[in-house]
């Protein structure tokens, strides 16, 4: 474990917590893409499938973190699609999730480390995570704005994988550890946040709200 990966995981946890708090406190999921949250839940379930296959006692923080990610993302989807369904902005959350899932699944079958069920599921979850934020960014571009709390969520979510890139550089240099698929997908994922990062740093940090030219 290194500092970049630690802060990456903490940033990821923070993102999940910020979103849950936003929805729970405001009792509304306006401005939140339900599809992105569904895609994240699929990512966690397919990536941590080993938890279900051979359940081992929660002997380390990693298992606990995996369970937290899965349960928090499923609970977030429950809040969006059931409890606060009336506030879900379905009209603007209109990016076709199939256009993300099918290519990720296809690519996972073509480019993977080993043609093995668990490995392909892991690869699929990595590819899907790289593009899972697109419905959320699409929704913001459609509505033309993002609540400040949603911007903080996106910043934390984007920072998590950016910090993981630093972690991969660190591990390559000190442990000569390379996981090419995760690295390439992680770089693509972080690039997708670039324009949002620019808006966040130039606006939200100064207390302004993100309003996109509609």
């Amino acid at each position: 474990m290194n500092i970049f990966r630690l802060f990456g995981d903490l940033s990821h946890l923070a993102a999940i917590a910020i979103l849950l708090l936003k929805i729970w406190k405001t009792r509304s999921c306006a401005g939140v893409s339900g599809k992105t949250q569904l895609l994240f839940a699929v990512c966690f379930i397919t990536r941590y499938i080993d938890l279900f296959l051979h359940f081992v006692s929660l002997y380390n923080t990693e298992k606990v973190m995996k369970l937290i990610y899965i349960s928090a993302s499923v609970f977030t989807c429950y809040l969006i699609f059931f409890k606060f369904k009336a506030t879900y902005d379905g009209n603007h959350d209109s990016m076709r999730a199939e256009f993300l899932i099918v290519p990720a699944a296809g690519l996972a079958c073509l480019i993977n480390t080993k043609f093995d069920a668990i490995e392909i599921l892991w690869t699929f979850s990595i590819y899907l995570e790289a593009v899972a934020i697109l419905p959320q960014l699409f929704l913001i571009s459609k509505t033309g704005e993002a609540e400040t709390i949603t911007s903080h969520y996106l910043f934390a979510q984007g920072s998590y994988r950016a910090l993981y890139i630093l972690n991969w550089i660190y591990r390559y240099h000190y442990e000569s550890h390379v996981d090419t698929i995760a690295i390439v997908a992680g770089v693509v994922q972080t690039i997708l946040y670039c324009d949002f990062f620019y808006l966040y740093i130039t606006k939200v940090v100064k207390g302004q709200k993100i309003v996109l030219p509609a």
């Binding site: 990821h12 990693e62 996981d179 995760a182």
Partner: peptide, 10 residues
């Protein structure tokens, strides 16, 4: 068979 890479990250 070659070992399946252990993806030891979350």
């Amino acid at each position: 068979p070659e070992p399946i890479p252990d993806h030891d990250e979350l």
